[in-house]
Structure formats: structure tokens, C-alpha cells
Design a protein around this nucleic acid. Sequence first.
RNA 1: CGGGGCGUAGCUUAGCCUGGUAGAGCGCCUGGUUUGGGACCAGGAGGUCGGGAGUUCGAAUCUCUCCGCCCCGACCA
Length: 588
Amino acid sequence: MKLWSQYFIPTLKESPADAEIASHKLLVRAGLVRKLSGGLYTYMPLGQRVMRKITQICREEMDRAGGIELWMPHLHPAENWQNGPRWAATREIMFRADTAGNGKRLSSEPEFVLGPTHEEVITPLIKAELNSYRDLPKNFYQIATKFRNEIRPRYGLMRAREFVMMDAYSFDADEQGAIKSYECMKAAYVAFFKRLGVLAIPVEADTGVMGGDYSHEFMVPAEIGDDDIIYDESSGYAANREKATSGLVPKDLADAAPCGAIEEFATPGVTTINALSKDPYNVAPDAQFKTLVYIGDGKPFLVILRGSDELEEAKLGSLGFGVVRPATLEEIVPLLGAKPGSLGAVRGSIKGEGALAGVFADQAIRLIGNGVTGANRDGFHLRNVNVTRDLAITKFGDYRRVRAGEPCPISGQPLKSRRGIEVGHVFVLGTKYSEKFNAVYTDDAKQSHLMVMGCYGIGISRTMQAIIEQSHDGDGIIWPWNTAPFQVIVTCLDQQDSAAMEMARKLATAAESAGADVLIDDREERPGVKFKDADLIGIPLRLTVGGRGLKEGVIEMKWRTAKDVQKIPVAEAETLIAAAVREAAAKA
RNA sequence: CGGGGCGUAGCUUAGCCUGGUAGAGCGCCUGGUUUGGGACCAGGAGGUCGGGAGUUCGAAUCUCUCCGCCCCGACCA
């Protein structure tokens, strides 16, 4: 039980100027956080209470799923990362942590870094500590601070430079075991988000720089989310757009027969799909081959798409390169012999064909059959280009960005799309890290094997904000029962009146005994201020005690989500309140 | 890192274009009247106008520069 007058909840009437979205504004207005600097926030007492609740629920669900809690350093020797598989790719988002002294000891390479995640710490640890198949499987987790020098911190806690994350790492004897661990964690996530009272949907996801075999993200649907979820309710298909596929290309599609010899034709000044689709050429975008040039680990390669399609860059990850980027004009011209706008991948027309690391064609170009592409000669295109006969394709794959409205790969129904906030992620990592750090175990036949790993993350601080984004109205936050900083607020309107205060304490005690965290608003404020603040900070159940009600022999009970106020007789108040608290807790 | 915007009291901001005594609301302090959905009256404290340089008799205002913050793109829990 806390008295507001002796606690610290600095609420604001006005939204801070630097907050754009509802949840960010409310975080600040309700006194949950204060900004120190871009992407750095202090959790104020109320915010810290919510963080503690989310953390505790997370801990309980991880423990239930067989997780073993530990705590690793936040300061990592850079060596661990240099020895790992992704130093080049991740160092850009890592903070270096050297002496803040006069620079004498500052070397060009960092000595220490602040941990953005912990694979590079736990894998060497496990290598040293676990050696036998008898030790496996194991799943370790921690709930702690992570540091990422995000390219662009955004929306308060949504993408911060310092944030709280639950990170877990599973170690299994084989792939099958790893998948089992993965499924177990996925189920634990579902249970966790359900207990929080937040809707978080698991969707198929790209593995990104983490590497690994397959993964799901947990998404809180929200307009302001950074990710597009492609889904179909009828089949249950749901995937991050980066990973999504569609049933656009029928599985049994036959290769189109050639329709004549390739002809070159002049297209002076035409360098875009759009221009070629207009008079006098009139080649529809979905009859054009689009040729893109990329550099993977220093080697150039081509990607062919339909003119009407967009490349989904994340899908290039499946090609196995470490670092992938678009080629520059200076790289393209000597390689293909023409500038972008006149590029093509017709066999024999590519000047530097031998230098290519491959020509990767999106499946959907098979729908074109015979089409138009650049001649690798500025101002010229080729027509009657046949996919199978003419294009120098190394491999077909799925590289295009799926759009809403395309058929679901499972049901064939039109796919829908919505935005989401990624609050959790589960991966099967495979042996990427165990190989690099030589984390092996001995089996019952004395054979050595690499451990198969999984890794799992939940953005705890981001989840706090995602809950607010999902659950608020014009008056403020609407906390779900289990994450509310206090579940019950007793608003005493006559704090000077000892009878009223005594009643307030009695009700608070009743609610507390029934299992609720209770805040008593005993401030010297007018009733309007107290009601507004109670709504703003989003306490699920409000009990109002005032001289006027007491004279009638009633106190008032109001749910944050309800419009109506229930008047309950003083004599029954304690019982009814306890029952209401128990019921709410049971439902949550 | 590229593009755009902003920086004036603890918070929200006006003033800047067209240079001439820094203004309001909220919050805070004092006194009074109030008291069921962000009260009212009177008085008060609080500002190196983000930092530096320049132009000018004179700069919050014009110029340059640095810094910080926010938004849009690629990245992430």
C-alpha cells in the first residue's frame, strides 16, 4: 500500500514536445519514464514497478519452461566478439567501452564493448562447462540491460540505446533437440504474453545477422510498428514481410516455350520500368525483366525480378553472403557494359560474366516466359527474351517482396498486411556459434559433436511500451491487470476528514489482502485532478471515498474500462472489493 | 550515414519573416475564496533565448559554425 502524497508519480498535463506517438506521450505524461538523452531513459518509480511485474512474469514462465537463470557481464572483452562469427557485421551497433581518461591508453581497436546480446559470452562459457551428452539439453537465461548504438533510436523505449531484454540460449545435442527446445520456448512466449494481457502474434521471420535456420517473431499489432506482417486468418499463415512468400507462382507452372529470336531495339533515354511501359514501347512492367547488381562479400552478383516486383533485400540472406550491399555505378558499368536502366542478364551479353558470383532469379519471372530486358548497351533493350533459353540463371529462388492481395501460400486466399511491433524473437541458431567457439560435447560412443544452439529474446522495456500502445484511450493508459503498477487506486476526496481516510485505508487493506497492489490518492488536490490522474496512469480499479458518499453510506467502484460507477454500501464494501479483486486476478 | 524539422523559465510555447526594454499558459512559492472530472482572484520567484564566432550603434531575431533533439529511409528486442 502506497500513499500518493509520499510516493513519486510526476504526471504531466501536456505531452512532451519530442514525443510523437501515443504510447511515448503516455509513458512520459503518466510519469513512468524521463529522458536522459536520445534513446536513454530513467524508469521512474511507477515505470519501474511495471518493469518489475513484466520481469517477474517473464522469469516465472522461463523457469516453468525449464530455463535456468544466470547473470552475465554487460562489459565484454572485445576479444570475445573478434573471435565470434559476426564481429564485422555487429561492431557498427556496439558501444566501445574504454577508459574515459586522457586518451593515452586509447587504442584504435576497442578493448571492451558493451554487450548488445550474449552469444559471444555464453558459448565460450558453455564450451568450458558442459562436455558430456549427459549435460544436455540446457537452456540459460538472464533478464538484463542491453546496449546497442542504434542507428536511429526512436519512439521512446521502442528502440532505445539501452534497454532491458530477456535473453536465453539453449544447447542441445542435435538438431531435433534444438527444435524441441525452440518449440518449448515458443510456447513459453505465448504463455508469457497471454499473462501480460497483450496480444502478441507469432509470425515466421527472417534470421538477420543472428544467423541460424529458422525463427519466429512475436508481434504486437500496431500502426506505428516497424514491421509488416503478412497474414491470412483462414489458414493461420503469418510471416514478417521480409520472410513472407505467396502462392503467386503455381507449383506446377510449365516453362514457357520461346516465341521467336531475340531482337534488339533502340530505347533512347529510357532508363526506368515505367518509361518502357509507356508509348511507344508499351511493355507492361510484369513483362519486363529487372536486373539488379549487388555485391556479396566483395563479389558481384545479379538478381532478376519482374519489372513490377520489388526486391526484398532480407531474402538475399539465403544466398549465404556475410555482408551484402547494392553495387555502385562505378562497379556496374565495367561489369555489365551499361548503366542501370539498360541492364540485362541474357547469356553472352554480360561483359564480366566470369566475375559474377551468380545470377539469382526470382521464381516469379517464370510467369513472364518471354519478355523484355536491357541489352547491356545504353539505350537498347532486347525483346523475345525467354527465361529458360536466354537468361544466364544460376539459381531460382524467392527474392521478391510479397504484397497484400496475393494468394496465401497455404489457402490461396488473398493475403492481408498490417503493421506490428516486434517484442520477442525465437531462433534455432544451429552450430554457427558452437563451431566458432568449438563448443563440443562427447556422446555415449565417445564421439565429439558440436552443440546445436537456439537463442531467444524478449524486449522487456519495449513490451511495456507496446502494452500502452495497444491499450490506451483518450484519457490515458489502460493497464491490463497483471502489468498494472497498482491494480487498485483508492481515491480519497476528503483526505482531511479522518473518517474518510480511515475508510480509504480499510478498503485498501481489503483489496491488498485479496492480492492487489494498492495506491491511495491522499493528495491535497481537487477531485477532478485525482480522477484525471487515476485515468492517466491507468489503474484498472478505482474506489472513490468521499464525504458525500459516506453520508449516503456508499463508496464507489469504477473499472478503468467501464463507463459506469457502481455504488456499493459501506457495510459490504470490503467483501465486494475483495471479491472483485479476486475475480479480476482470476480472469487475467 | 543521407533528407527534412526544431532548440526561448521545470513543462507547453509566442516573438524571428521586417534587428530596438524577452511575453503567455501550465507547474512552483505566499495569501485568500473554493472543493465530485485538470478551479478562481491577488501577489511572487524563475531566462547566459543550445554553445561559439561574425555582421551591426544595437542580435532571441540576420550570417557562419559546432552541439543536441525529433521525424522519414536501411538495422533491431
